[in-house]
Design a protein around this nucleic acid. Structure first.
Lengths: 215, 215
DNA sequence: AGTAACTCGAACAACGGTGTTCGACAAGAG
DNA sequence: CTCTTGTCGAACACCGTTGTTCGAGTTACT
């Protein structure tokens, strides 16, 4: 019975990790399979939120037993996939320039976030009905904090409204983006237009009452 | 084997319906059970989108076999429930005064729509993954048309933006409302604030670029 | 080369769902 | 009152899922 492992950091870059205090150093073989499973799971789940472990194992070119050898349950696999996706997204989002006019910064942030939301929308659904309640939100803490910081700055500078709670504005942004993903999925919106539509909508939604909507 | 029936209109108000050309006039017994099932299904599905036919039958005080006697499959039952809910909602929405300043009219429409969205959000989910794709949208045609008409009028009068497609604005409204329902469900928003937040957000979002956001 | 770690397929058990069948029985309509 | 129409519970077949066990085989570390 192989031990269970949760590679919080991508195991690809850490060949031996001499600083590992407990982890019994998995065999190269196993490490390869773990990333294969993780990748296959990401692909399958973003395609169908209800993908079964059989499908995922097959897509990873691995026996179902092997999958369960590395991930104790479907839920924990999804958790790992989700964590992985968030980390990747954070990497991309961390490079966005959030200085200057908050509205321009927001536009840039949306442009980057949008692709992630679109890509992982299906995975999010999988996480939402397989993970314990609150877990999804917990994993979203970092990206949400980033948005909140920008919004707060915009409020202090008087370009974003303060008559609604920041948390509500964040939620609105979240919902509009996910909604756009749904519209694309239904063929009622083209991916090229999406980012622009979202930006125009949110910039206006965030404008303080009495001030003109920027063009 | 009892025949399958789809009471498009509420069977409560039509006692005999002498104009029925084919339908073999169900027994009073059966009619009672049908509405009981419909009501129980509504309640169960709005509580849990994945409610099973057993739960629904039990909640209706009826054997599972009886349920299948009236609704050939779980999907068709959900369809009937959904149609019923939409019809009820249309009744309420039809009484909203949509004249006068489009922004005020929108506020009134949101106030009414909001309660429906909040109540039936779970039922919507059930419909979305049990009904054939496009069916949900098909059933939403009427309420969507109502919103579209109002939006179009506001655009002509210059109080709503025309630089984004009406369909997108409708979608945004839809998403913000459903998002608010989720926030309430998660305890991060109180039902009293919801309608106000939604209205403020959407009025701003729909304001034409260059024009001030109304306070 | 030896050994521990790992993989694989097949098979199993348990679960929960859907939809159907049967036969006995109640209830409404004429 | 009679007879059609419904109802009921239990049982069944079927499906796909999750998670486990076994034994035999393979792969990588040292």
């Amino acid at each position: 019975m192989p031990a269970t492992t949760k590679p919080t950091t991508t195991p690809t870059s850490t060949p031996k990790s001499k600083t590992a205090p407990k982890a019994a150093a998995k065999r190269a073989d196993a490490q390869r399979n773990i990333v294969a499973i993780l990748e296959a799971a990401t692909e399958c789940l973003t395609l169908d939120p209800a993908a079964s472990t059989s499908e995922i194992a097959k897509a990873a070119g691995v026996g179902r037993v092997t999958l369960y050898g590395h991930f104790p349950s479907r839920a924990e696999l999804i958790d790992a996939v989700f964590v992985h996706a968030i980390e990747g997204g954070e990497g991309a989002l961390g490079q966005v320039d959030l200085t200057g006019d908050p509205r321009d910064a927001l536009a840039r942030l949306i442009e980057s976030s949008w692709h992630l939301v679109d890509r992982y929308s299906s995975l999010l659904i999988a996480a939402q009905d397989s993970l314990p309640p609150g877990r999804v939100r917990e994993l979203h803490a970092d990206p949400m904090a980033r948005v909140e910081r920008l919004l707060e700055r915009g409020r202090k500078e008087g370009v974003f409204r303060t008559d609604l709670p920041t948390s509500w504005l964040v939620s609105a942004m979240h919902n509009v983006m996910h909604g756009a993903a749904g519209e694309i999925h239904g063929g009622r919106l083209t991916p090229d237009n999406a980012a622009g539509y979202i930006t125009l909508t949110l910039i206006a939604a965030f404008t303080p009452p009495g001030k003109p909507v920027p063009s």
